[in-house]
Amino acid sequence: MVTAMKAAPPRAILRRLHRPLGRRFGADQSGVSAVEFALILPIMLTLYFGAVELGDALTIKRKVTSVTSSLTDLVTQSKSVTDDDMKNILNAAKTMISPYDDSKLKIKITGVKIDDKGKATVAWSDALNDTAFAKNSPITLPANVSEEDSFLVTTEVHYDYLPTIGYVMTGSFDLNDQYYLRPRLSREVKRPSN
């Protein structure tokens, strides 16, 4: 005759197994630091690489602003700008943006004539890694710099920033600035060959 054995409920079995395992693993602290490090590492890497990428972007943006204002300032200090002068001015921009890649730098320096009715047209335009404006083409100026019967020099600089690592910031960013100045030594800045 077969007697039926009373089966232990599953909870009771788990409790019996859990006690010795729980004591043994609960008391063992040797892997806690490794687990904590593994949990914190992605956050630390994100913060580090994000700071590096943001720092580079801010540095390049500051350099773009410096290039923009310096080039405009150089041009407005002359009565006339020759081809050699313009070449030297644009080469100065390459030096200013270093150690970053100067092939990503796009510059447009434009002389703008504003007639007595307030219509602004391009008197001359030069560019580096970009297309210059066509002579006598209309150009839109902000209202606060447009003054009837005057002349302006404007410089527009763009830098296509692509993060080196691309861990936090992905894609490319157009870091740009534009600057307007009036000539200092004459009524307008001439470009004899343009």
Results as ranks from 00 to 15, higher is better:
residue 164 T to V: 14
residue 40 I to N: 04
residue 84 D to K: 10
residue 37 F to M: 13
residue 46 T to P: 00
residue 39 L to F: 12
residue 34 A to E: 07
residue 156 E to S: 08
residue 165 I to S: 00
residue 146 S to A: 15
residue 7 A to C: 05
residue 24 R to F: 10
residue 104 K to W: 00
residue 34 A to L: 15
residue 10 P to N: 00
residue 169 M to A: 13
residue 107 I to E: 07
residue 175 L to H: 14
residue 101 D to A: 14
residue 93 A to V: 11
residue 32 V to S: 10
residue 57 A to N: 02
residue 156 E to G: 05
residue 96 M to G: 07
residue 50 G to H: 11
residue 85 D to F: 04
residue 66 S to A: 14
residue 154 T to I: 12
residue 40 I to K: 01
residue 110 T to V: 09
residue 171 G to R: 14
residue 72 T to V: 14
residue 132 A to K: 14
residue 8 A to S: 13
residue 102 D to N: 14
residue 177 D to E: 12
residue 189 V to K: 03
residue 66 S to G: 14
residue 75 V to S: 03
residue 180 Y to S: 09
residue 135 K to V: 15
residue 182 R to N: 01
residue 97 I to V: 15
residue 82 T to S: 15
residue 125 S to I: 01
residue 1 M to I: 05
residue 112 V to L: 06
residue 4 A to R: 12
residue 168 V to H: 03
residue 60 I to S: 10
residue 78 S to G: 05
residue 119 K to E: 11
residue 41 L to S: 09
residue 104 K to A: 04
residue 15 R to K: 12
residue 82 T to E: 04
residue 51 A to L: 08
residue 95 T to S: 15
residue 103 S to H: 05
residue 153 V to M: 03
residue 29 Q to S: 11
residue 33 S to I: 15
residue 134 A to N: 12
residue 186 S to R: 12
residue 94 K to R: 12
residue 177 D to R: 05
residue 55 G to R: 02
residue 185 L to K: 13
residue 120 A to E: 08
residue 75 V to D: 02
residue 190 K to F: 04
residue 22 G to V: 05
residue 122 V to L: 08
residue 124 W to N: 04
residue 40 I to D: 06
residue 33 S to A: 15
residue 72 T to N: 14
residue 93 A to H: 02
residue 141 L to V: 01
residue 17 L to T: 01
residue 116 D to G: 09
residue 63 K to I: 04
residue 164 T to G: 14
residue 20 P to R: 08
residue 124 W to F: 11
residue 121 T to D: 08
residue 48 Y to P: 03
residue 46 T to Y: 01
residue 81 V to E: 00
residue 62 R to F: 10
residue 83 D to M: 08
residue 15 R to F: 02
residue 178 Q to H: 09
residue 97 I to T: 12
residue 45 L to T: 06
residue 172 S to Q: 15
residue 186 S to F: 12
residue 136 N to D: 14
residue 70 S to G: 04
residue 16 R to M: 05
residue 161 Y to I: 11
residue 103 S to K: 11
residue 85 D to Y: 06
residue 73 D to I: 05
residue 170 T to V: 10
residue 121 T to N: 11
residue 132 A to E: 11
residue 144 N to C: 12
residue 10 P to C: 00
residue 186 S to P: 07
residue 146 S to K: 15
residue 69 S to M: 09
residue 190 K to E: 07
residue 189 V to Q: 06
residue 159 Y to M: 06
residue 2 V to A: 10
residue 99 P to Q: 13
residue 2 V to I: 10
residue 67 V to S: 09
residue 168 V to Q: 06
residue 35 V to K: 00
residue 36 E to R: 00
residue 76 T to S: 00
residue 57 A to I: 05
residue 39 L to A: 06
residue 42 P to A: 03
residue 148 E to D: 13
residue 3 T to F: 06
residue 79 K to C: 00
residue 70 S to F: 00
residue 13 I to L: 15
residue 73 D to Y: 09
residue 11 R to Q: 01
residue 16 R to I: 06
